[in-house]
Structures are given as structure tokens and as C-alpha cells.
Simulated scan of single mutants.
Amino acid sequence: MKKTIVSIALSALAYMAHAGGIESLENFVRSAKSGKAEFTQVVTSPGKDGQVRTKTSTGTFEFSRPNRFRFAYNKPFQQTIVADGKTLWMHDVELNQVTSRSQEKVLGSTPAALIAASPDLGALRKDFDLQALPDSNGMQWVQATPKVKEGQLNNVKIGFKGNDLAALDITDGFGQRSQITFSKMELNTDIPAATFAFKPPVNADLVKQ
């Protein structure tokens, strides 16, 4: 009887610890209406020669619910990704190319939906299976797996420190892994609407998808 009670107690404690990631995600989605941070992204991908290749980028991230965000990559190459509520813009400065896509069609099962689009946990569960993971590296983690397998995303792990978004660990169907860590996160701060406005440069190649 004592062993049974102890087992139940330990199981309950383990569940509570693992549930921390789900609760952190719910709190973030519900309470974070806007935010900005700096980020470092490390992309690891398998090469054709069997060698693992890595690329590190840095930049800034801003979002405003609903459905507006901006990733500005500064190093090593300049690239901007902007969602203005209707259109997702991608501007590659080096290639002098702008790609535009319907935001409604592409954001449903993406990491961006997890952090900047969905209004609540119920909306997220329509597109993702959510699973709490054990705490690690001082963060609470939750894994989100798209219910629709047509996209390239396998899953994304979201890490939180308290109610602050701290990391994304993204794996795609090509064996590529993208680890994004956020720093200097400021939530519910005033972000000008112009931040999410994008106008293609006059001389850029425009590709509509």
C-alpha cells in the first residue's frame, strides 16, 4: 500500500514537472500580445558528402498579435522575413529578390504560428499535437508536431524560462535542424505598426508564390 502511494505521488510530481512546458506555452500565447528580442540561429544540415554543416546567423525578432512578426537577419547575410497580416514577405538582400506568399496559406503549421499567430492553446491544438517534455538547460519544454504532414516541418520544441520564450529547436523532413535562442526578450512593449509594413525595393526581383 505504501509503495502504491509513493508511486502515485512520484508519478504526479513527474507529470507536474513535465506539464510545465504546456503551461508556459499557454501563458505565453494568452498573455504575450507583443514582444521583441535578439536571436542567434544555428542551422545544422547533412551534406551530400556525409559531413555535417553548420551555419550561424544573428538578428532581431519582433511580433504583434494577431499574425504580425518580423525576423531581421543581420549577420552573416542580410535577410528580412515580414508577416503583415495578409502577406508573408521574404527579402534576400544579397540576391536582390523578394518572395511574397499568402500568409493564411503558409503559416498554419509553422513555428511562427506557435509564437506569434495563434490566440490561445485551443487554436494551436487544431494544427499541432502538443507534448510536454522534461525540463532541461534551465528551461521548460514542449514539443509541437504538425497534424498535417504535407509541410516540411517534422516538429518544433519550444523552450521557456518562466513566461519568456527562450528557444526554438526545429527539425524538418530533410534532416536539417535549426536552433534559435532568444535574448533580451521584452514582452508587451510598444512596437510601431510600421515595423510590420513591407514595400519591395523598386529594383528587386519579385516572386509571387
Results as ranks from 00 to 15, higher is better:
Lys3Glu: 15
Val6Thr: 15
Ile8Lys: 12
Ser11Asn: 04
Ala19Met: 06
Ile22Gly: 04
Leu25Ile: 05
Phe28Trp: 01
Lys33Glu: 10
Ser34Ala: 05
Ser34Arg: 04
Ser45Ile: 01
Lys48Ser: 12
Gly50Tyr: 04
Lys55Tyr: 10
Thr58Met: 06
Glu62Met: 08
Arg65Cys: 01
Arg68Lys: 15
Phe69Met: 07
Arg70Pro: 05
Phe71Asn: 03
Ala72Leu: 12
Phe77Trp: 04
Val93Leu: 11
Val93Asp: 15
Gly108Ser: 10
Gly108Val: 11
Thr110Ala: 03
Pro111Arg: 00
Ala113Tyr: 14
Leu114Thr: 09
Leu114Lys: 09
Ala116Glu: 02
Leu121His: 01
Arg125Val: 00
Asp129Val: 13
Leu130Asp: 11
Ala132Thr: 09
Leu133Tyr: 09
Pro134Tyr: 12
Asn137Tyr: 02
Gly138Asn: 09
Gly138Ile: 05
Gln143Tyr: 08
Ala144Lys: 10
Lys147His: 10
Lys149Glu: 00
Lys157Arg: 15
Gly159His: 07
Asn163Asp: 12
Leu165Thr: 14
Ala167Trp: 05
Asp169Glu: 10
Gly173Arg: 12
Gln176Ser: 15
Ile180Glu: 03
Ser183Phe: 00
Met185Arg: 11
Met185Pro: 06
Asn188Lys: 05
Thr189Lys: 13
Ile191Ser: 10
Ala193Asp: 15
Pro200Thr: 09
Ala204Val: 11
Gln209Pro: 02
